[in-house]
């Protein structure tokens, strides 16, 4: 709409010392019906549920660190956190981009269906748990039980992975450059084929990660848990 052009460059400031969380999120959720496309959230002080339920092509910069579920269920928006995030960042994201300059606590990108989550620091345990199509790129390390029951999508880790990586994995692809402390049940190392190198190269580029695809190993599901076999019963 031509009428919105004049306001496009304006950044709306949402200062959490001045306004409540409800007003912050309501403003962002109303964005499609306003002229604003850029927002900055200040004084977050580790608050929960910041910038959740967005559904517009807007850009939100969160200055500081957040608590649980930052950018939860995001659709289309770009959310950039300059600090660290608490548990469940971008949980159940559908589309859009979430970038975290610092570290992420447990459950980063849990159950998310789409979009790109970039963590510049480390992610702790259960990164990508039950992921259903999201792409996650972690520049640092990830903690234990990451990609537990991961169904779809790609998890890229430039650093090391903790215990039980990819336990009970379905069809998600895991790419790790560093060491893996241990693999979970039914997760195995797999051959890196040309198609995987292409996927990885694209994800690394989109995540601003300086790494070579051929330095990574690929892990995936052995698919032995897909159909019950009494001789594998101890893996359950």
């Amino acid at each position: 709409m031509i009428a919105t052009v004049q306001a496009v460059s304006d950044v709306q400031i949402l200062d959490m010392e001045q306004i409540e969380l409800r007003e912050v999120n309501a403003t962002l959720q109303r964005a499609p019906s306003t002229n604003y496309t850029q927002f900055e959230i200040l004084n977050t002080r580790g608050s929960h549920a910041i910038a959740v339920g967005l559904d517009a092509e807007i850009e939100v910069i969160v200055k500081g660190s957040t608590g649980y579920y930052c950018a939860g269920m995001n659709q289309r928006a770009t959310v950039h956190v300059t600090g660290s995030v608490g548990p469940g960042v971008a949980e159940n994201m559908m589309s859009g981009t979430v970038i975290v300059d610092g570290d992420a606590s447990q459950y980063a990108g849990a159950t998310a269906h789409g979009g790109l989550l970039v963590i510049k620091g480390n992610a702790s345990s259960r990164c990508g748990i039950s992921m259903k199509g999201i792409d996650i790129v972690v520049h640092g390390n990830i903690g234990h039980m990451s990609a537990f029951m991961a169904q779809k999508g790609n998890l890229v880790v430039l650093g090391d992975a903790g215990d039980a990586l990819g336990d009970s994995l379905y069809e998600a692809r895991l790419f790790v450059r560093g060491s893996v402390k241990s693999l979970g049940a039914d997760c195995i190392e797999k051959e890196m084929r040309a198609e995987h190198l292409d996927i990885l190269a694209d994800l690394l580029a989109r995540a601003g990660a300086d790494a070579k695809p051929q330095d990574f190993k690929r892990y995936g599901s052995a698919r032995k848990l897909y159909h019950f076999n009494v001789d594998h019963a101890d893996a359950y």
């Binding site: 002080r45 580790g46 608050s47 649980y68």
Partner: peptide, 13 residues
């Protein structure tokens, strides 16, 4: 238990 407990500590950034 959560990061927000640290928000007011000196030099936390």
């Amino acid at each position: 238990s959560e990061y927000r407990a640290f928000a007011g500590l000196p030099g936390i950034d």
